[in-house]
């Protein structure tokens, strides 16, 4: 069980390599899916809100250190996203929620929070249009992340390996 809980940190490096080397080929107008967020939501729904908050902080720190973005920005947004996703944790449906459409809804919600929070931290501009903030910087990136998560969900075998 304890080893299971550090698995997402081990998965981070290969996933981050895919994020910075492969995912850019699939960018749409500068928007790319956030694979680290999918990993974070998956493990938050598996082990609960408190675990997710701490994991979000750790994965956010690793993201900041490896991408060169403002130190603390991903820490903040990933911690907050895991907190939101953690509300959907239910001990009774741990095994099934990550295989259900609800999982995609949670990823979408967490992703919107992540993207908007990141925009506010990285580019706090009082004249920022609410529509731009919500759609261009919130919903569109979140939709892309959700679509990729749905593809992963479809091709994930019924028996869990992670």
């Amino acid at each position: 069980m304890k080893i299971d809980k550090i698995l997402p940190v081990i998965y981070f490096t290969p996933l981050m390599l895919i994020q910075v080397l492969v995912v850019p080929y699939f960018e749409l107008n500068g928007i790319v899916p956030d694979l680290i967020l999918i990993l974070l939501v998956f493990y938050t729904l598996k082990y609960g809100q408190l675990y997710g908050i701490i994991l979000g902080f750790v994965l956010g720190a690793l993201t900041d250190f490896s991408t060169g973005s403002i130190l603390g920005s991903s820490m903040f947004t990933k911690t907050l996203s895991a907190f939101i996703a953690g509300y959907f944790y239910n001990e009774n449906i741990v095994g099934t929620i990550t295989k259900s459409p609800l999982f995609l809804g949670i990823i979408f919600l967490a992703s919107v929070v992540n993207a908007i929070a990141f925009s506010l931290i990285a580019n706090f501009d009082i004249s920022l249009n609410l529509f731009t903030l919500l759609f261009d910087q919130g919903i569109f990136p979140a939709l892309y992340t959700t679509i990729i998560a749905s593809i992963i969900l479809i091709f994930t075998p019924k028996r869990s390996y992670i």
Binding site: I53, I54, F57, L71, G72, S73, T79, F83
Partner: peptide, 21 residues
């Protein structure tokens, strides 16, 4: 309130790093 306390603590640490980036 452990989830909230941990959340606030970690968010404060993040803000500290942002302000000292």
């Amino acid at each position: 309130f452990k989830e909230y306390l941990v959340l606030i603590l970690l968010l404060l640490i993040s803000v500290f790093f942002i302000s000292h980036s």
